[in-house]
Nucleic acid binder design. Structure first.
Length: 564
RNA sequence: GGGUUCGUAACUCAGCUUGGAUAGAGUGCCAGCCUUCUAAGCUGGAAGUCGGGGGUUCAAAUCCCCCCGAACCCGCCA
């Protein structure tokens, strides 16, 4: 901020350091009571060969107080600057109220594709997918906020032996059952048969070969197999569609593995011709031992393509179709190696877009007893979790608003439930694993989404009840501690977004929003807004909080409620 | 065996990018606060060898090295 620059200017006059040098040393004191901006004197200490404590004292007596500078105080080896708060407050609030939801935006105008969650069609979405989708959607919104055009893409893994397993089980035990006849969500029906197959295959390993046979039939275009595959895939997609809608996810582009899985063979041949790949045991492989990635098969000895072959092709296809400035794959960290290999190969081909590819790798969601396993049916189902959480939210709402209409109850409880789930998944740094304890994880108190929503609702309530209009005018120049803290926190927002964007890290926003809401609640208890001396100004402050809080939640994919 | 990532309070996590002043939250526990803008809240308290060891530095949770522990990967599966 220009306050820092002004201070740097003053210090540059008094010391041998240059302005930008000072600017990089200036920091915010750990405790606000110490001051607003601190200058550590250690650097000067080595230049002047003098005790930093003495240097701080000397500077304190040399620097004059101006109208924006309330006080200067040397504390130990630090020189602390106290800013005049009312000017700062007016400046910050004016900017927020003027720019509103555009506060902190930029005009980057890049086209960026974000791929998520790319599910398999043999089972319904689970908690891992919810983490994936929360991340993908939040990163999309953060980059949009920075002015970029985002294409939300989804790669449907709709073929392969895992899908044949569900097909086998359905054919054998399904007896023309349908989602309608069983009154079950269509993708859940498929998942049930997948689990059934796995259990049966444990007893009778020969079933694995049966699934392989179906895959061969599928690849040869056997009509009956294709018909069954189409029928079951539709069930999967219909089910996913509902979950996406419930969770607030909309894609701009759908890719299907079944349509691209055979492609990329020309690339393999091209790589061979260009000596990027070599032939070994009749297969085409990439020798990446120099890159410490070992040898990777690109095309099987029988000429069929594998995962990496198709992914090479898809990366090029995406770039060709959209002329992308960036492409982000939101995929769990179990595939770190795959993406390292993929990007290395594309680079060897000389594709310029390779430098714009990014694997947004995130940690696993585990249960207290260990990893979730679809095969064993120990996964936390996405739909079930959302509906269960919504039920809990309904109970809480009914305690507070017993007369609320059924319609409003449904809308509000869903917003609160999704906020609890999404925030839980986004508050932890995405590289880390999350241990999901079903008994404790879903909460509406403490460091949670609903806590933030509640703070927002309180703010809305104040504005609704006041008879006056917010105005940036101070009746009293003396601001209370929490009022100043809140203003300072609001001012941090653009920097926080910048940081979150640079690191593609929604958790930075989650933690900021939590701190913001926390300070607002402290302010709420310290200062009564209605009928106070500074009412119109405080209303403007509350409105500023509402704007920034709502925007922060939006960037996390979370909606606000006006009353809760 | 090799690679990648993680390790901070009883539990779940911030802080590490850019080294600085007594390491911060939440949950749980203990003690308070609802005739005052919504108690899904607020105030106070107890609770820490920042995995261990070494190094760099005036200064290390933060940077470097070694060790230990955990997760994931190392397939002509996806």
């Amino acid at each position: 901020m220009n306050n820092k620059e002004a201070i740097a200017k003053i210090l540059a006059k008094q010391t041998k350091l240059k302005e930008d040098e000072i600017l990089s040393i200036l920091e915010v004191p750990s405790n606000p009571e110490l001051g607003d901006i601190a200058f550590p004197c250690f650097k000067l200490s080595s230049i002047y060969k003098k005790n930093p404590i003495e240097i701080a004292k000397e500077l304190e007596s040399k620097i004059k107080i101006t109208k924006d500078l309330e006080k200067i105080k040397a504390t130990g080896p630090y020189l602390n600057f106290f800013l005049e708060k009312s000017n700062l407050a007016i400046e910050v609030i004016k900017k927020i109220l003027k720019e509103k939801e555009k506060f902190g935006t930029e005009k980057n105008k890049q086209t960026i594709m974000i791929e998520f969650p790319s599910p398999n069609t043999n089972k319904p979405l689970h908690l891992g997918h919810l983490r994936n989708m929360s991340l993908g959607e939040s990163v999309s919104r953060i980059l949009e906020h920075k002015g970029n055009k985002i294409i939300r893409a989804n790669l449907n893994n709709d073929r392969g032996v895992h899908i044949c397993k569900s097909m086998y089980a359905y054919e054998k035990w399904g007896k023309n059952k349908t989602p309608e006849s069983e009154k079950i969500k269509s993708d859940h029906l498929i998942g049930d048969y997948y689990v059934m197959f796995s259990k049966a295959a444990k007893e009778n390993p020969a079933l694995e070969e049966e699934a392989q046979k179906i895959l061969q039939k599928w690849e040869s275009g056997d009509k009956k197999t294709i018909a069954l595959w189409k029928k079951m895939n539709k069930w999967a997609f219909d089910g996913f569609k509902e979950t996406y809608k419930l969770f607030g996810i909309k894609h701009d582009k759908q890719y299907y593995e079944s349509e691209i899985y055979g492609q990329g063979k020309e690339l393999a041949q091209e790589g061979l011709n260009k000596n990027i790949f070599i032939k070994k045991d009749n297969a085409i492989i990439a020798d990446l031992t120099d890159e410490k990635l070992g040898e990777k098969v690109i095309l099987r000895a029988d000429g069929t393509s594998i995962y990496i072959t198709q992914d090479m092709y898809l990366a090029i296809l995406k770039d060709k179709e959209y002329k992308l400035d960036g492409s982000i794959y939101v995929v769990a960290n179990e595939q770190d190696y795959h993406f390292q290999v993929l990007f290395t190969i594309l680079k060897k081909f000389g594709y310029k877009f390779t430098k714009n590819l990014h694997h947004l790798s995130y940690g696993m969601v585990e249960l207290p007893e260990g990893r979730m396993k679809s095969r064993e049916g120990t996964v936390v189902d996405a739909d079930d979790l959302i509906l269960e959480t919504q039920k809990l939210a309904k109970t809480e709402i009914k305690k507070r608003f017993p007369k609320l209409s059924e319609k409003e109850l449904n809308i509000r409880s869903l917003k609160i439930a999704l906020s609890a789930i999404k925030f839980m998944l986004l508050k932890t740094d995405h590289v880390k694993n999350i241990i999901f304890n079903p008994n404790e994880a879903i909460s509406f108190e403490g460091d949670t989404g609903p806590y933030i929503q509640y703070s927002y609702a309180r703010a809305s309530s104040i504005l609704k009840k006041s008879k006056k209009k917010p105005e940036i005018k101070l009746t009293s120049k003396i601001l209370k501690e929490k009022e100043i803290l809140l203003i300072k926190k609001l001012a941090e927002f653009p920097e926080v977004i910048e940081n979150a964007q640079r690191n593609l890290s929604p958790s930075i926003i989650s933690n900021y929003t939590l701190e913001l809401a926390h300070i607002f609640n402290e302010f709420y208890h310290q200062t009564k807004v209605l009928d106070s001396e500074n009412e119109i100004f405080l209303l403007a402050l509350v409105e500023s909080f509402r704007i920034v809080c709502k925007k922060s939640l939006y960037l996390l994919g979370i909606e606000t409620v006006e009353e809760m």
